[in-house]
Deep mutational scan, measured.
Amino acid sequence: GATAVSEWTEYKTADGKTYYYNNRTEESTWEKPQELK
C-alpha cells in the first residue's frame, strides 16, 4: 500500500514525558499509535 504521512506528531510534556497528538482527529495519547510501530 501507499505510505501515508502519519497524522501523529510526537510531543514532550514539561516533565519530559512523550505523548502523541493526531492532527486529523485531535486525539492525544500516551501510547505509541499503531501507525508509528
Rank of each mutant, 00 (worst) to 15 (best):
E7N: 07
S6Y: 09
A14N: 08
P33G: 02
E35I: 06
Y21R: 05
D15K: 04
E35M: 06
T25A: 02
T13L: 05
K37H: 14
T3K: 07
N22T: 00
S6K: 08
D15R: 03
L36T: 05
Y19I: 09
E7L: 06
N23V: 12
N22L: 01
E27W: 02
G1L: 14
T18V: 13
K17R: 15
G16K: 00
Q34H: 11
T29E: 03
Q34I: 12
P33E: 03
T18S: 10
Y19T: 02
Y20D: 00
K32Y: 06
K32Q: 08
W8N: 00
T18G: 01
E7D: 12
G16D: 04
V5H: 12
K17S: 05
E27H: 04
K12F: 08
W8S: 00
Y11L: 15
K32H: 05
A14W: 08
T13N: 08
K32F: 06
G16L: 01
N23W: 15
A4V: 13
R24L: 14
P33H: 02
G16S: 01
K32V: 09
Y19F: 12
K37W: 15
E26C: 15
G1Y: 11
K37G: 14
R24N: 08
W30Y: 11
S6F: 08
T3I: 13
Y19M: 08
E35R: 03
N22Y: 02
L36S: 05
Y11E: 05
K17H: 08
A2T: 12
Q34T: 12
N22D: 01
W30Q: 07
Y20W: 15
D15F: 05
W30M: 08
E35N: 09
S6M: 09
T9H: 10
T9I: 13
G1T: 14
Y20P: 01
A4Q: 14
A4D: 13
E27N: 04
Y21M: 04
T3R: 07
A14K: 12
T25Q: 01
T29Y: 07
E35A: 11
G1V: 14
L36H: 09
S28A: 11
Y21I: 06
D15C: 15
K17Q: 11
S6Q: 10
S28H: 14
A2W: 11
V5K: 10
K17C: 15
V5W: 12
G1F: 14
S6D: 11
E7C: 07
E35H: 07
K12N: 05
E10M: 09
P33L: 02
E27Y: 04
Y21H: 06
T29I: 08
K32S: 04
E10K: 05
S28R: 15
G1A: 15
K37D: 15
W30D: 07
K12S: 06
W8I: 02
T9E: 10
Y11I: 12
T13F: 03
T9M: 11
Y11W: 07
Y11A: 05
T9G: 06
T13Y: 03
E35W: 06
